[in-house]
Deep mutational scan, measured.
Amino acid sequence: NQASVVANQLIPISTALTLVMMRSEVVTPVGIPAEDIPRLVSMTVNRAVPLGTTLMPDMVKGYA
């Protein structure tokens, strides 16, 4: 089972991601792979991401 990136807090729309905002967790459905966390830092989300939500590729500008 692959770990995915999960929001560690509410991430408001257009917020630049930082390490403290994300954690890795094995979830269903599978989202962005946890090993991509370093790549996600400073990318922005294009929607509000509630606490505990799995980050999907279409939620992060420039990721997909």
Rank of each mutant, 00 (worst) to 15 (best):
1 N>S: 15
1 N>L: 15
1 N>Y: 15
2 Q>L: 14
2 Q>E: 15
2 Q>G: 15
2 Q>V: 12
3 A>D: 06
3 A>N: 08
4 S>I: 02
4 S>F: 03
4 S>H: 01
5 V>L: 02
5 V>C: 06
5 V>G: 01
5 V>I: 13
5 V>R: 03
6 V>L: 08
6 V>K: 02
6 V>F: 01
6 V>C: 05
6 V>H: 01
6 V>R: 03
7 A>G: 03
7 A>E: 00
8 N>E: 07
8 N>L: 05
8 N>I: 05
8 N>C: 06
8 N>A: 13
8 N>K: 09
8 N>H: 06
9 Q>V: 12
9 Q>G: 05
9 Q>T: 15
9 Q>F: 11
9 Q>A: 13
10 L>F: 14
10 L>C: 14
11 I>G: 02
11 I>E: 00
11 I>S: 02
11 I>L: 07
12 P>T: 08
12 P>E: 10
12 P>Y: 05
12 P>I: 04
12 P>C: 06
13 I>M: 14
13 I>Q: 14
13 I>F: 13
13 I>K: 15
14 S>G: 15
14 S>H: 14
14 S>E: 12
14 S>D: 14
14 S>N: 15
14 S>I: 04
14 S>Q: 14
15 T>C: 06
15 T>V: 12
16 A>W: 07
16 A>I: 10
16 A>Y: 08
17 L>T: 00
17 L>D: 01
18 T>C: 05
18 T>A: 08
18 T>F: 03
19 L>M: 11
19 L>Y: 12
19 L>A: 08
20 V>M: 15
20 V>R: 14
20 V>F: 15
20 V>T: 15
21 M>R: 00
22 M>N: 00
22 M>G: 00
22 M>T: 00
23 R>A: 06
23 R>I: 06
23 R>C: 05
23 R>P: 01
24 S>C: 08
24 S>L: 05
24 S>K: 09
24 S>H: 13
24 S>R: 10
25 E>C: 08
25 E>A: 13
25 E>N: 09
25 E>H: 08
26 V>S: 10
26 V>A: 13
26 V>N: 07
26 V>G: 05
26 V>L: 14
27 V>L: 06
27 V>T: 11
27 V>D: 01
27 V>G: 02
27 V>F: 03
27 V>E: 01
27 V>I: 07
28 T>R: 05
28 T>H: 09
28 T>L: 09
28 T>A: 14
28 T>Y: 09
28 T>D: 15
29 P>S: 04
29 P>E: 05
30 V>Y: 11
30 V>T: 10
30 V>D: 10
30 V>I: 14
30 V>A: 11
30 V>S: 13
31 G>F: 03
32 I>F: 02
32 I>N: 00
32 I>T: 02
32 I>E: 01
32 I>Q: 01
32 I>K: 01
32 I>R: 01
32 I>V: 06
33 P>G: 05
33 P>T: 08
34 A>Q: 06
34 A>S: 13
34 A>V: 09
34 A>G: 09
35 E>N: 09
35 E>L: 12
35 E>Q: 13
36 D>F: 11
36 D>S: 10
36 D>Q: 12
36 D>K: 10
36 D>V: 08
36 D>C: 15
37 I>V: 06
37 I>C: 05
37 I>G: 04
37 I>H: 02
37 I>A: 07
38 P>K: 10
38 P>F: 09
38 P>V: 13
38 P>S: 12
38 P>R: 08
38 P>H: 09
39 R>D: 05
39 R>P: 00
39 R>C: 12
40 L>E: 00
41 V>Y: 04
41 V>M: 06
41 V>H: 01
41 V>K: 04
42 S>F: 08
42 S>C: 15
42 S>R: 11
42 S>Y: 13
43 M>E: 04
43 M>C: 10
43 M>N: 04
44 T>V: 11
44 T>R: 14
45 V>R: 00
45 V>I: 07
45 V>W: 01
45 V>P: 01
45 V>F: 03
46 N>G: 07
46 N>M: 13
46 N>D: 08
46 N>H: 13
47 R>V: 14
47 R>F: 08
47 R>A: 08
47 R>Q: 12
48 A>T: 15
48 A>P: 14
48 A>N: 15
49 V>C: 06
49 V>E: 02
49 V>T: 04
49 V>Q: 02
50 P>H: 09
50 P>G: 10
50 P>S: 08
50 P>N: 11
51 L>N: 14
51 L>C: 10
51 L>S: 15
52 G>D: 14
52 G>T: 00
52 G>K: 04
52 G>R: 04
52 G>Q: 01
53 T>E: 07
53 T>K: 08
53 T>V: 15
53 T>H: 15
54 T>A: 06
54 T>S: 04
54 T>G: 02
54 T>V: 13
55 L>R: 02
55 L>A: 02
55 L>N: 01
55 L>P: 01
55 L>D: 01
55 L>E: 00
56 M>H: 06
56 M>E: 08
56 M>T: 10
56 M>D: 04
57 P>D: 05
57 P>Y: 08
57 P>H: 07
57 P>A: 15
58 D>Q: 10
58 D>N: 12
59 M>R: 01
60 V>N: 01
60 V>C: 02
60 V>Q: 00
60 V>M: 05
60 V>R: 01
60 V>D: 00
60 V>P: 01
61 K>F: 11
61 K>T: 14
61 K>I: 14
61 K>R: 13
63 Y>R: 03
64 A>N: 14
64 A>G: 10
